[in-house]
Amino acid sequence: MEEIDIGKKVEKYRKAKDLSIRELAKLSEITPSMLSQIERGLANPSIQTIKVLAKSLDVPTFSFFIEEINTVDLVVRSDHRKKMVIENLSYELISPDFTGNLATAIMNFPPNTASSEKQLEHKGEEVAYVLKGKIKVFLDDEEYILEPGDSVKIPAQMKHKWENHFNEHAAILFSVTPPVF
């Protein structure tokens, strides 16, 4: 975990509001030199000072304590996807990880495979899109054959199952929220 630089965040929010150090200092009732020291990391503000700065900048106090997102961690290169194999099925994670409220993956189905023996349900809502091949999806008591370009939404707690009883490989892009597998 990186150390959080509150001063840099104060400066970022101040500049976003187009305020000078003097203007923010006046709004926050602290000296310009103290604010300058906070922004440069030379002084550690008290919790009370952070609350006052947050109010003056019209941002939540906790926003000063949230770690910055490193954008390089948001990019997933096609040759560096996390892969998981369960029996004959493989999953390639398209999203960087399972943090957050959404995960996206590609399910790869060789011919004559199924996602499970019986229909399963989970708390996550799902949307799936067929990239290639044909696939049969069971939704409660109904069955549908999906082909490339077709999609399906599977509500949370709906029993479902995937089967590929065709002669070609199938690939399905799907997103789940919250991410559960």
Rank of each mutant, 00 (worst) to 15 (best):
His165Arg: 10
Val180Gln: 09
Ile4Arg: 11
Tyr13Ser: 02
Leu19Asp: 13
Asn70Trp: 05
Ser56Pro: 00
Tyr144Arg: 07
Asp79Arg: 11
Leu173Trp: 07
Leu93Lys: 07
Arg77Glu: 13
Ile30Glu: 03
Phe64His: 00
Tyr91Thr: 01
Ala54His: 06
Pro60Asn: 15
Lys123Cys: 04
Lys136Gln: 15
Asn70Gln: 12
Thr99Val: 15
Lys118Leu: 11
Lys9Ser: 04
Ser46Gln: 05
Pro32Leu: 09
Asp150Val: 00
Asp79Ile: 07
Lys161Thr: 00
Asn108Ser: 13
Glu147Val: 11
Gln37Thr: 00
Ala105Met: 07
Pro111Ser: 01
Glu143His: 09
Ser116Phe: 07
Ala16Ile: 04
Phe109Thr: 00
Lys132Ser: 10
Asp58Gly: 07
Gln37Gly: 00
Val72Met: 15
Leu173Ala: 03
Phe181Met: 14
Ser20Arg: 01
Asp150Ser: 01
Lys153Asn: 14
Asn88Val: 07
Ser28Leu: 00
Asn108Lys: 07
Leu173Asp: 03
Ser56Lys: 01
Val176Tyr: 08
Leu19Asn: 03
Ile66Gly: 11
Asp97Gln: 10
Val85Glu: 13
Glu67Val: 02
Leu24Gly: 00
Lys26Asn: 11
Ile145Val: 00
Ser95Ile: 05
Tyr144His: 15
Lys26Glu: 10
Gly133Tyr: 13
Val152Phe: 14
Lys17Trp: 02
Glu147Ile: 05
Glu121Gln: 09
Ile47Phe: 13
Lys136Ser: 06
Ile145Trp: 15
Lys123Thr: 05
Ser28Lys: 06
Asn108Asp: 12
Ser46Cys: 06
Asn164Leu: 01
Val176Gln: 08
Glu11Gly: 09
Val75Ile: 15
His122Leu: 08
Lys9Phe: 05
Pro178Trp: 08
Phe109Leu: 00
Leu53His: 04
Leu24Ile: 03
Glu87Asp: 12
Ala156Asp: 04
His122Phe: 02
Tyr144Gly: 08
Leu102Phe: 10
Glu142Asp: 14
Val76Pro: 02
Phe166Val: 03
Ile50Phe: 05
Val85Asp: 07
Ser175Lys: 11
Ser36Cys: 10
Phe166Tyr: 12
Gln119Tyr: 13
Leu146Pro: 03
Ser90Phe: 09
Leu131Phe: 06
Lys8Ala: 08
Phe181Leu: 15
Glu126Pro: 04
Asn44Met: 10
Leu146Thr: 00
Pro155Glu: 01
Ser95Phe: 06
Ala170Met: 03
Ile6Val: 12
Leu35Met: 09
Ile38Asn: 01
Val127Phe: 06
Pro179Leu: 03
Thr61Tyr: 15
Gly124Glu: 01
Ala114Arg: 05
Thr99Met: 14
Leu173Ser: 04
Asn112Pro: 02
Lys82Asn: 12
Thr104Ser: 10
Arg14Cys: 01
Leu89Trp: 13
Leu173Arg: 10
Asp150Lys: 00
Pro96Leu: 15
Glu168Val: 06
Phe62Leu: 12
Thr177Leu: 08
Ser90Trp: 14
